[in-house]
């Protein structure tokens, strides 16, 4: 039994039969989702913020708190990464069965590095906004000076013309 070429619409179209006469007779749309929700197995959030490392299930290696010294933490994480690579080489020689923990440590350092760099994006956005505002102020000041200069020039030309006319 094959389906028809033009199958009928889904049965719930009947719910909107009286929509033109009475819009309230049709069901309301679902309310907006708040918080987090699953979509194709991935966890999404309705507020666009960068999730913290704990929320992602990763151990945080640098200091917590609002004021992070990004340069110091990035340099220390870089050094720690090099040490972990060296330790991995040593472990592979002396205790090969314990490589997994070292690889996990290296992975954690990389995740922390990328998280720190992504955390710099809001700072970068604010700095860009400051730069744009400074440029705008500079252009406006230039425009004000330009208008003042041209007004003065026009006034001078007008006075010269009036003097010439009065001379006759």
């Amino acid at each position: 039994m094959a389906t028809a070429t033009y199958p009928p619409p889904p049965p719930y179209y009947r719910l909107y039969k009286d929509y033109l006469q009475n819009p309230k007779s049709a069901p309301d749309p679902p309310p907006p989702i708040e918080g987090t929700y699953l979509c194709f197995g991935a966890n999404y959030t309705t507020s666009d913020v960068l999730p913290t490392l704990e929320e992602q299930g990763v151990r945080q290696l640098y200091s917590k708190g609002p004021n992070v010294d990004f340069k110091k933490e990035l340099r220390s994480l870089n050094g720690e990464l090099q040490l972990h690579v060296l330790e991995l080489a040593d472990i592979l020689i002396e205790r090969p069965s314990q490589y997994a923990r070292r690889v996990e440590e290296i992975s954690t350092v990389f995740k922390n590095l990328h998280h720190l760099l992504n955390s710099l994006r809001p700072h970068q956005a604010r700095a860009t906004l400051i730069h744009i505002l400074e440029l705008q102020i500079q252009r406006r000041k230039q425009a004000v000076e330009d208008i003042k200069r041209r007004r003065e020039e026009a006034r001078r030309l007008l006075n010269e013309s009036l003097a010439t006319l009065d001379g006759h």
Binding site: H123, I130, I137
Partner: peptide, 25 residues
């Protein structure tokens, strides 16, 4: 990392600077 142009001021100082620039603008 050394070349990063991060000012010593934090988020509050940046927002304050933005407010000042907005008022001046």
């Amino acid at each position: 990392v050394a070349a990063l142009p991060i000012s010593e001021s934090g988020e509050e100082a940046q927002l304050k600077r933005i407010s000042e620039l907005q008022a001046e603008n």
